[in-house]
Structures are given as structure tokens and as C-alpha cells.
Design a binder for these strands. Structure first.
Lengths: 332, 332
DNA sequence: CGCGTTCATGTAATCGTTTACATAGGCGCT
DNA sequence: AGCGCCTATGTAAACGATTACATGAACGCG
């Protein structure tokens, strides 16, 4: 393992200047064919790799974008990441994924430190001032920050929840409950709004007792199930703000002897991979995750090409309901 | 948004040299208290952030490690990542996560490009030569590469599978099947070995028909279930090489009218979050994911401190069986 | 033949830090 | 007083690439 070759070593071996080597590597059509071959052979022979730090420093760009998501454990994100990788890779950009739950100081540095050219932000809970302070183009995905005027790609949350309500009402349910997400989360708010508006469309109203609190996790779904089961007049159908939450609800209900869908219908939100293989298979609102990732990446890369300016457009992709086995007509 | 302050701007504002600013930021105890305060105030006022590219270039280290995993969608990894972040963060290192499924050229550059000081590799399917060619310390996690002599942290795969076999035999099962992973994968091989040795301990043998092929995915579990269901003499218990695979198996069996655990007992491997909330809750071999991540990160960081040399030790953490609801005595 | 253009390449400045080395004051000790 | 040593700071040389500008050859054309 030699002490890492530099561009000068290649230049010497090929009998050309460092400028020519650099050009051969970054814009091959600007050097003569003969020289190019000579240089490439030398690169191969020496095992030269360009030093990213030096290149980034001089060219003032990192050829990389950063994906910043809260809780990488969320299965919902992974498919989105994959399509981001795909688009970015095709554009010659590296993708770095980081957790937005790291401590403040580290996070505040993100854009400014020159390690990435742009950010795909999946976390709407960050401080608006910090995000704009990053100084690099940011595209928000799924969530958004009200106080910041950023480009954003997401799905129709309220609309999706409306579909769920329509479906349950069509099955004959009249008493619906909703397990929400964290109160401060924008998605929670939108989905709750969709729930309320959906009910209103059918002349129904959400009584306070049927608004159960949660935080998207399985554990919170299970807690909500216990609260729901203890209520004197139980809803016959429950919509959860996420699939994970729905799994928690169904599982806990099952442990209390209440079967889904015989005793209670449950609808989720996200359509993660597991939904199809849960027992019962989960009826849920599908989010087009691949499209979400692709569009977000394309938007960011477009902004990069345009010199770093990004219109604050908000793209809303339609969501659709996937009806599976967790919903049925109410028990007589 | 001013044109990004440089260290010289801070130096000027504070009335000191750039060296002093640099020292204040990286080793504060080497400058006088008074000067330090002056500098820090200037940094604050100007909004200065050190440029990572310049720093990395000059100091020949990136203060970052890279996590390289195949398929980030695998829920098994995320918890491990979290504890890696924790350990690395405490050591002042940034963690970058990348997908090892990106195309070859991009992957080959990884270590050499100077963007990270070390790599945590979760993919045993990479070319040994490429990995050693990276030129930075590498610690393998969970999987390993036979042809490369690398440090490695993993769990006792064969032993874990043995526990599963013991459990099923104790319940009275005599005819067990195993749904494996990809033939080329080291984990598959180890778990298969554990299955065989486990059976042998109880004087049983694995007839070829009970060795079903799979690839860790839910889909492959479902396929295996169909094959199994069609067999004239079905096994009464099935061990799957991963939890996801087990979900696929149980779900597909259920669709064919075969209930778990009444008609068939199923054991998984990994103990992902969902296992506890599946219906039935999954009996599975637990892997200590937090410990795995912590130890791997500590090992890598230790190697970095020691100047980049890493003994090829192989740490094996014990696995244990978590008995839940998917296993029961065989039908009649 | 002389001039302008184009193409391929070389020269050297530059990106923004860190850090080896130099400098200078202050202090204690003989 | 003189010497040595420590501490705090400044000076300037790297780090390894990219790229503006300069150079020179080749070519076409009036």
C-alpha cells in the first residue's frame, strides 16, 4: 500500500503536466486521444484516485448531496432513499445519509462546511432559521417547515385520509376514530384535517373521545388501542396516522380479544412493505415513495444546475387507498 | 447570506492571526483565555464555519466514518446505525451512510478519496481485493469476507439457530424445515450449519426436501410457504433465516388456510421491531443490535486512534432465543 | 506570406485550512 | 544578571487538486 499517489505522480509517469491529467479525468474530450490513453494507462498502473478534499476545496463544490431524515429506523424512508440514490448517481453525485437527530452543533454546520452541495430534508421539526442558515439549496420531502419558504415534495395527506374515511363510511361505519401523530408535526395536522373534513362530507362529526393521541410508533398504536377498548361507546373503525401505528393498534386489540376486521376495522397510512404481509393484510393509504424520492432529487439537482436557486414550489403527489383485509363492514 | 466567511476574516475581526483562530477552534487550551473569548466572539458575530474540504485536505483526515450497507431498506440495520452514530458522535466523528449497491466505480473509490477515515462494512458480498484496496481501516459488521483478513463483529449465527432447533424439538417437533438465505451469503451458510448441527444433536437429520431456498425477503418466505404446503409430508415446524422471511411464510400459509402456530410453528432470525407486534408475535433469534453497532464503532475508532492498524480479530456476540407466540407443540 | 483561429498542452495561482518553526515576553533559579 | 524554559502568538509553507491564462503548433485564406 504505497503512500497514496498524487496527481503529480501520474503526470510524471505519463510525461505530461498535472493540468492535462486533471483534464483527462474531468473532461476527457478536451485532450488529444493519444495523450488521453497515455494518461489513463498511467492512472491505472499507479492506482491513482483523486483526492476528494483537494478537489472539493479548489472547485468549491462537493459533488455530493445529503439526505437528512429523523430516525433512519423508519421503514417508510428506505424506499425513497433508493430512488434518490438512483437519480443522484446518474447525475454523478454521491449521496450521504445522516440522521437529523444528532446534536445541534453538528447539525448547524451541515451545509456551510462544504461537504455537500445540497440537502434533501425529511424533517419538518427543525428550526427554520438554522435550515436557511445552511447556505445550500434545500428541498423538503414529505414534511415541510411553515416558517421557511422552501421547495417541497410531498403527498396529499388530507386527501389520502379523506379516501380512508370514504371507504369506511361506504362499508357502513358511522363511528370512526383517529389515532394521530405528534401535535407539532405537519403531517399529523394535515391528516387530522383530512379526517375532520372527510367526516363532515358525510354529515358526521368527530367527537373528542374518538381523537386518540399517538406519535406514529407501534407502541403508541398499542396504547391507543387500550384507550379505545376501554371506552363505553367504541368506534367501529379506526384510522391510524401511520402503518406502524396501525400494527400496534391491531396487535394490541388482538391481545385483548378484539379481532380485526371482525370487531374493528383499521386503516393505516404509508403502505410500507410489511402492510401486505400483515395478518390481516393492512388497508392503507399508499404514498408513491419512489416518485417522491425521484422528484425530490430531480428538483434539488435542477436547483444545483441553476446555480443554487430553488423556487419555493410545493409539489403535491396524489395518494391512493389500497384496500386489503383489515377493513370490513361493522359488526351488526 | 454573505459570501461565506473564511478564517482570515475571523482573524482580522479578532485582531489575531489565522493560526490563533485555528488553534482556538481545534485545541482551545493552547491559547490564552482572553484571546480565546475574543476569537469566539468574532466567530459568532461573523457566523464563521470551518470549511471541511480545506481542513480535511490539510490535516489528511476527514473526521468522518462511512457505514456501507446493502439495501438500507433492511429494518434490521437501522437500530445498529443508531448506536454507531452515538459512539462516533461522542468521539467527534461524523457518520455517513451509503448503500453498497451503487455501481462499481463509485464504490471502488470509497476509502481512497479521503472523504472518510474508516469504514463499517455490512456487506460480505463485496470483492476482497477492492475492500483491501480502499486503504482505510475497515471493520465488518454481521457479515464478513472469507478472502479478506479483516476485523469483524457479529453474532453467533450457528449457535442462535441451534437454540431455535432445541426449542422446537423440546415442543415435540421431529420434522423441521429451514428456509435459507442466498447460497453465497456467509450468514446463510452459518445458519444452515447451525440447523444441521442442531438436528444432529437430537439424532435427527435434514432431509433434502426440508431445505427450502430463500433470500431473506418476505417474498421468498411466501414462495417457500407454497413449496412447503405442496409437499406430501410437511414439516410441522419451520425456521426462517430472517424475520422478514418468516413474515412472508406465515402470511402466505395463512392465506392457504394453514394457521400459525396451530398448523405450523415458525421461528425467525433477527428480532426486528415488528416481530413483537406481528400476529402471532414471532418467536425469533435475537441479535443484540445496539451492542453490535457500539462494538463495531469502538473497534474502528480504536483502530483510527492507533494510526490505522486494525487487528483481524473476530468478535462474536451471543444470540438468544425470544419465545413468543408463533411456536407451539405440533398438531395432534 | 502574414494574420487570425482553433486545438492541445503547459505554467502557475488559487481554494481555506493546519501546523512546523520562529519569536518574544515572563518567570524562576543560581 | 544571566540562563533556560515555558507559554502565547505570529509567519509562512504545505495539503492536492482545478483552472485562468499563456504558449505554440497547425491550418485556412485573402
Amino acid at each position: 500500500m504505497k503512500p497514496t499517489a498524487r496527481i503529480a505522480d501520474v503526470a510524471r509517469a505519463a510525461g505530461v503536466s498535472t493540468a492535462t491529467v486533471s483534464r483527462t479525468l474531468s473532461s476527457p474530450d478536451r485532450v488529444g486521444k493519444e495523450t488521453r490513453d497515455k494518461v489513463l494507462r498511467a492512472v491505472e498502473a499507479i492506482g491513482y484516485r483523486v483526492n476528494a478534499a483537494a478537489r472539493d476545496l479548489r472547485s468549491r463544490r462537493a459533488r455530493a448531496i445529503t439526505v437528512l431524515a429523523p430516525n433512519l429506523a423508519n421503514t417508510f424512508f428506505s424506499r425513497i432513499f433508493a430512488s434518490v440514490q438512483e437519480v443522484a448517481g446518474a447525475a454523478g453525485l454521491t449521496v450521504q445519509i445522516s440522521d437529523s437527530l444528532v446534536e445541534g452543533e453538528r447539525l448547524a454546520v451541515f451545509g456551510r462546511d462544504g461537504r455537500s452541495d445540497g440537502i434533501l430534508l425529511f424533517d419538518g421539526g427543525l428550526d427554520a432559521e438554522m435550515v436557511t442558515g445552511w447556505g445550500v439549496p434545500v428541498v423538503m420531502v414529505c414534511e415541510w417547515i411553515d416558517a421557511a419558504d422552501l421547495a417541497c415534495v410531498g403527498t396529499d395527506n388530507a386527501g389520502g385520509l379523506g379516501l380512508a374515511v370514504d371507504h369506511l363510511v361506504a362499508l357502513g361505519h358511522r363511528h370512526l376514530a383517529f389515532v394521530g401523530g405528534p401535535a407539532c408535526n405537519v403531517l399529523s395536522r394535515e391528516r387530522l384535517r383530512g379526517f375532520r373534513e372527510g367526516l363532515a362530507r358525510h354529515g358526521l362529526t368527530a367527537d373528542p373521545a374518538s381523537l386518540l393521541s399517538g406519535d406514529f410508533t407501534m407502541e403508541s398504536g398499542a396504547r391507543a388501542a387500550r384507550v379505545w377498548a376501554a371506552q363505553p361507546a367504541r368506534a367501529s373503525a379506526v384510522i391510524c396516522a401511520s402503518d406502524e401505528c396501525a400494527f400496534g393498534f391491531i396487535s394490541e386489540a388482538d391481545r385483548m380479544g378484539l379481532r380485526c376486521p371482525a370487531d374493528v376495522s383499521v386503516v393505516g397510512f404509508d403502505d410500507v412493505e410489511f402492510s401486505e404481509r400483515y395478518i390481516p393484510p393492512l388497508t392503507t393509504v399508499h404514498q408513491p415513495r419512489a416518485a417522491l424520492g425521484r422528484q425530490a432529487a430531480e428538483m434539488l439537482i435542477g436547483g444545483l444546475r441553476a446555480g443554487g436557486t430553488l423556487a419555493a414550489a410545493r409539489h403535491v403527489l396524489p395518494s391512493r387507498l389500497v384496500v386489503r383485509g383489515s377493513t370490513a363492514p361493522p359488526p351488526d
